[in-house]
Nucleic acid binder design. Structure first.
Lengths: 218, 218
DNA sequence: CATAAGAAACATGCTTGACTGTTTGCAAAA
DNA sequence: TTTTGCAAACAGTCAAGCATGTTTCTTATG
């Protein structure tokens, strides 16, 4: 289907199929929900047979937790890149809030909301996810620490404020499901929060007019 | 009315069975999750037959959405009682944050996390829930408005701060699933937020004695 | 370097189990 | 006696896991 490269190594074949399956899994989690993310659906979405899926992943639980781990590590990488750039050019704290919102609103927390309940009730599944999530949080902490170093704010305080921002945004995203068509609700809340965060980083750089991230709100 | 009375009217029988079924539904949503909240399980938990369930509720979706509506209206009543008492005696803003946390942590948001994903993917189910949730939000707004009147703070601002508190707590609760054994994380965050909220209600507790006299109801 | 043996990747069909919605049967209340 | 509340059996659907069959690549050897 792809590059007409006729002869691919086993590793290449295998890796591509795995990737297709994991991407399909995340797509389905986001678009149709965990309950509808069945192994036949995943295989169909990935364009491979169900046998291929069972060959690569022993159980439904396995492909889901592996796919989630993949998604989270990708998110960590993206966030790390953003942080490096942000620190290098000296952005405003508003930008961070916007970035976090964007990141969560662009599938991350919607996918999270799909597997969290299952993790709560299924000890094996939860046990598989906890290390993954711990890594994610460690990545976040590293970024907050770097941010603190740049702004000169106490690292512990920075961590608390940024983690609170993450939690606020999680709660806001969860609201979008049953509170649609109320953009003011989200707009006002984000504006309020940005102001609060600004007060925590008083020294705020005198630069960065050019940074224009879209503050996507519904 | 209940218990040893052999002869119960149809209405009483019917109402009790309905209530048992709705309570069982919420219990199961909380304890075992939406996917495991099957109609046979609900009937078993309620101690009635599956036929009784289908007699009272036409479909699985129906009993779930009705049960959720019941839970939310009960929560609204409880919160309203708290607010009346709070306003009457003049409490601290810290108390409100604590109450919201307690309320969410005591099943409310765990149950919410169960049905939110389904609502996101199932338009009919979502359509049934949206009015219910709108009522809940209206109830909250009324309480925030009363609170604003008591503290003399701008009602719009109060609403934003309180809604943000709700969202923050929602996000925190969602974290508890895969971030257990980290009490400091939640403790610090709540402490930080209480301090922020305190700053939004600066006049705090100036008039706790006289406002008790004024609002002498209850 | 040509090729055959074997391993890895993939495909298909079957079995079991569970759930939902429906229908039919029956006893207690009106 | 009629209706209401409940119970039990039934039919249709579908996913998960497994077992067996087929293709694609790898490699060792003559």
């Amino acid at each position: 289907m792809s590059g007409t490269g006729k002869r691919r190594s086993q590793k290449e074949r295998s890796a591509e199929t795995s990737t297709r399956l994991m991407n399909a899994t995340i797509d389905l989690l986001h678009d149709r929900g965990l309950a509808r993310t069945t192994t036949p659906e995943i295989a169909r979405q990935a364009g491979v047979s169900r046998g291929a899926l069972t060959h690569h992943f022993t159980t439904r639980e396995a492909i889901i937790s592996v796919s989630v781990a993949d998604m989270l590590s990708q998110t960590t990488r993206d966030l790390h890149r953003f942080a490096e750039d942000f620190i290098a050019r000296g952005g405003s704290s508003d930008e961070i809030v916007d970035y976090i919102w964007q990141m969560m609103d662009d599938r991350l927390f919607y996918v999270t909301m799909e597997y969290l309940p299952e993790a709560r009730h299924n000890p094996d599944f939860r046990a598989e996810l906890i290390p993954t999530v711990r890594d994610f949080h460690a990545g976040l902490d590293a970024i907050w620490t770097a941010l603190a170093a740049r702004t000169g704010v106490d690292p512990d305080h920075t961590r608390i404020v940024m983690n609170a921002t993450m939690c606020l945004v999680r709660g806001m995203i969860s609201q979008t499901v049953l509170r649609p068509n109320d953009p003011a609700y989200y707009q006002e809340m984000l504006a309020f929060w940005k102001q609060q965060v600004r007060q925590q980083f008083p020294i705020e750089a005198a630069s960065s007019q050019e940074s224009r991230r879209k503050a996507g709100t519904r």
